[in-house]
Design a binder for these strands. Structure first.
Length: 749
DNA sequence: ACCAGGCGTCTTTTT
DNA sequence: GACGCCTGGT
């Protein structure tokens, strides 16, 4: 045995226990900042270097490609050698690999394509049209959600019992038609990757046996984010080998809305009673004030496994709270604090993070940062392979690779416009449906018969020949970047974008050039083993949508949603828009489970902070074009008052009047601010009719509530009340028999 | 093919 | 308020 001090020395006792555990299932409950990734990386190093496990016997599953890359990098760094043969990747990536290897056994065409969410959405829209369902009654989003959530739970149409329910019957009909269309086109959506791979393993003992032998050690990161089918997969793959090493934190489960099941943690303990649990509760990231605040907040969630994070760190600074006048004031305040930290206190700009609940909030911060001359980087947003022009170009490549790809066909058959209009397409679709053939085949038939006007026939023939010519080029074994350049040029897309005059033309051309660049990088990195490099590249584009924005050289302030902040840490963190309706978001406020998830999201946000945490909220905010008065979030109340210090202006001159005061003037809705002092949040603004915004009232039918908003005047005056039982309602002031209830108590501090 | 204007929507995001 | 999408007109 070689020297193992580099594996064990950096670990605390709990971490060491997890890393050196012998065989048997392990569940590592790893609190925020407790060294979760370190444990995984060191565990793998332990297996390889101490237990003499061969790399190809290890399977490490992560939530994102980025996490996989980082983990791989850290393992290699630690071992000081490449980890050939080890699988480190996502569930989807692994499923994809299974299906490529066993396409025949899985009943797939060899060159099946992956549909991303956007492709899927478009396909569903076409299905709805074909089924003659009205989109306003049957929203494609809803159908997409229906299909995906059932697939995530492992359910195919026969497993779903509509039981005479008209709505379910229709959704099921859409699901079936969609599935049929996918089969015909040889397309697979993300959920289908997992489902197919699961069925393959389930139904083919020989294949399952092979992978069980191969993956003698299975490690899973972010286990709380796995969905039902992924968990089923793990059980199948592990069998009774007791070789699962799962790491997760129920308090950081924030993806329930897309099928993740925190309950998998409990299920795991039930399904594998011999599981040993290791808790990592020492936090190495935050001050004890920050940690205490986060602990107190999350303690409000009734359904949690329970865990108490602690730190040896000092109390540190109190948590700062700022009640902004409005969203503009909030942005100005945050940016001013960052300016001070970076310019006066020598902090790196990249040490400062602005977090928000919704992407729409980023704009004001960006404007304020530009004004202050501070460079910044926004995470998230549209990603490279999701851009429309990139997807257009990829559609050409997809059609070249597989002419049955209906999604690709529909997308580009008339892009750039080549006189193949809706009439022609309708005919092709009808024809294809009647013959059970693909659009491509229908088009071939159509050009050989006098079905269409000569003009349309000619245009269609031109398109078919274009794609066939390119397919021939693709066959002729040329370098991928050259092929892509050729396809692009022949497609006419660059010329089409160039003459587009909405100012985005140049940007699109640049993106197309970057696509060629991306294929060059891809070709250089991927050894052209299988030969089908085009297919590999297309799969890569679908599975890994790429970064939205390249890492700049410049030291910049970090802007992102709370969701994308998971896994990161910053010395200085601002959580903004901490208001009822925004955070927790109004769409999650009614369902207790979703509310708990919002709280976990807040917990995730707070635990990102190492030294200093600001919580800001605005007393008035412009949202969806309306000016709304917002109450401070309940989350603020859930943080012990003694850990919070109220901040005022902070050198920022406060606006006078401002927009909040306007608009209501005619009704006497002038804003009389109470200041940000002791009663922050109790915006005492006359809402007319003798009621004030934020005031508690009682309605004979709806019971108690709080005045949220008011508008209009005279007999048209309406008032919005957030009722405890009935939720937010607009009432006509004249008829609403409202009476004042006990006075609003601010936020309880 | 292209444009104007109406309409509905507006949480989070990876794969 | 902004954006995308659809529709109906030219």
């Amino acid at each position: 045995m070689e020297d193992i001090s580099h594996i064990l020395d950096p670990l605390n006792p709990a971490q060491r226990e997890a890393v050196t555990a012998d065989t048997g299932n392990r569940l590592v409950l790893a609190g925020a900042g407790s060294g979760k990734t370190r444990v995984l990386v060191h565990r793998i190093a332990w297996l390889l270097q101490v237990q003499d496990v061969r790399p190809w016997h290890v399977l490490a599953v992560t939530f994102t490609n980025k996490a996989a890359r980082e983990m791989k990098g850290r393992i290699e760094e630690m071992l000081d050698e490449p980890i050939g043969g080890m699988w480190v990747g996502t569930f989807h990536g692994l499923a994809h690999r299974f299906l490529r290897a066993h396409w025949q056994d899985a009943g797939l065409p060899q060159h099946f394509q992956i549909l991303d969410s956007d492709d899927q959405f478009r396909l569903i829209k076409r299905i709805l049209k074909a089924l003659e369902l009205d989109e306003s009654r049957w929203p494609p989003r809803q159908a997409q959600g229906f299909i995906n959530s059932h697939k995530d739970e492992g359910r195919r149409p026969p497993h779903i019992d509509a039981a005479g329910d008209f709505f379910l019957e229709q959704q099921l009909r859409i699901y079936r038609a969609y599935q049929e269309a996918c089969e015909k086109a040889g397309s697979i959506d993300f959920a289908e990757l997992l489902l197919r791979a699961h069925e393959l393993l389930r139904d083919r003992p020989d294949i399952l046996h092979h992978y069980r032998e191969r993956f003698a050690h299975i490690l899973v990161d972010e286990f709380q984010d796995t969905n039902a089918i992924q968990y089923a997969w793990l059980r199948l793959l592990a069998g009774d080998r007791d070789n699962l090493f799962l790491v997760g934190d129920d308090d950081q489960s924030i993806y329930g809305w897309r099928g993740a099941r925190v309950e998998n943690i409990q299920s795991f303990q039930r399904d594998y009673p011999n599981t040993q649990i290791v808790r990592l509760e020492q936090n190495y990231r935050s001050t004890s004030n920050i940690l205490g605040a986060a602990n107190a907040l999350i303690a409000n969630n009734p359904s949690r496994l329970g865990k108490n994070l602690w730190t040896e760190d000092s109390a540190g600074e109190p948590i700062r709270r700022y009640a902004a006048f409005n969203e503009i004031d909030e942005a100005r305040f945050v940016v001013e604090r960052i300016r001070r930290a970076s310019q006066d206190e020598g902090m790196a700009r990249s040490d400062c993070a602005i977090l928000y609940r919704t992407t729409a909030q980023s704009r004001l911060f960006e404007e304020a940062l530009i004004q202050a001359g501070l460079p910044y980087r926004v995470y998230g947003g549209q990603r490279f392979f999701e851009r429309a022009e990139i997807k257009d170009a990829l559609a050409y490549l997809r059609l070249v690779a597989n002419p049955s790809d209906e999604t690709a066909f529909e997308r580009i058959v008339n892009l750039p416009p080549r006189a193949i209009g809706p009439r022609t397409l309708d005919l092709l679709r009808t024809q294809a449906r009647a013959d059970g053939s693909t659009l491509w085949e229908a088009a071939r038939v159509a050009v050989s018969q006098p079905l269409l006007p000569a003009r349309a026939t000619g245009a269609l023939r031109g398109f078919l020949e274009l794609i066939e010519g390119l397919a021939a080029s693709a066959e002729a074994e040329q370098e991928l970047p050259d092929l892509v350049a050729e396809v692009l040029e022949a497609s006419g897309l660059p010329a089409h974008f160039e003459k587009n005059k909405d100012g985005r033309g140049i940007e699109r051309l640049e993106n197309l050039e970057q696509l060629v660049e991306a294929t060059r990088r891809f070709a250089a990195e991927v050894p052209n083993d299988e030969g089908d490099i085009l297919g590999s590249f297309l799969a890569h584009a679908a599975l890994e949508a790429g970064d939205a924005q390249a890492d700049g050289f410049e030291d910049s302030v970090q802007l992102m949603t709370l969701h994308s902040a998971k896994g990161l840490e910053f010395p200085l963190v601002f959580i903004t828009g901490v208001e009822e309706g925004l955070f927790p978001h109004s769409m999650s406020a009614t369902d207790p489970n979703r509310l708990e998830e919002e709280r976990r999201l807040c917990y995730v946000g707070m635990t990102r902070a190492k030294r200093l945490l600001y919580l800001t909220h605005a007393e008035s905010r412009r949202l969806h074009g309306r000016e709304d008065y917002a109450m401070p979030s309940r989350f603020l109340r859930e943080v012990p008052a003694e850990l919070i210090e109220e901040v005022r202006g902070g050198g920022v001159s406060r606006p006078h009047g401002g927009r909040a005061a306007s608009g209501f003037g005619a009704m006497g809705f002038g804003a009389r601010r109470s200041g940000t002092g002791s009663k922050a949040g109790a915006a005492t603004v006359d809402a007319g009719g003798g009621f004030q915004l934020g005031q508690r009232v009682r309605h004979p039918k709806f019971g108690p509530g709080v005045v949220l908003n008011a508008e209009g005047h005279g007999s048209g005056a309406r008032i919005q009340i957030n009722f405890e039982s009935a939720g937010a309602k607009w009432l006509v002031l004249e008829y609403a028999r409202l009476e004042p209830a006990d006075a609003y108590q601010g936020n309880g501090e």
